[in-house]
């Protein structure tokens, strides 16, 4: 797979490759934020539950 990708990368002109690089960087950022966001939601939900005197979470 990587070889195919590499061939494609080599086939791109400089401008397109730089655009692709930016896209990959922003996608990596998106992926990073995707995880953090979900974890936050869960922990926030949990803390809300605790404050409301709700059920303790299953550990």
């Amino acid at each position: 797979m990587n070889n195919e990708i590499l061939t494609e990368i080599k086939g791109l002109n400089d401008s397109d490759l730089l655009v692709l690089y930016d896209e990959v960087l922003s996608h990596l950022q998106y992926l990073k934020e995707s995880i953090i966001l979900e974890e936050k939601e869960v922990s926030e939900d949990a803390s809300e539950n605790q404050e409301d005197g709700g059920e303790a979470k299953d550990e």
């Binding site: 080599k10 490759l17 992926l31 995880i35």
Partner: peptide, 23 residues
Amino acid sequence: RNNYVNSQHVVFDKYKVLIENEL
């Protein structure tokens, strides 16, 4: 979902390195 995201992070990290090396 996080497992999937993490696995994709690894994949795209590799792509990033490949592009960087090329650049």
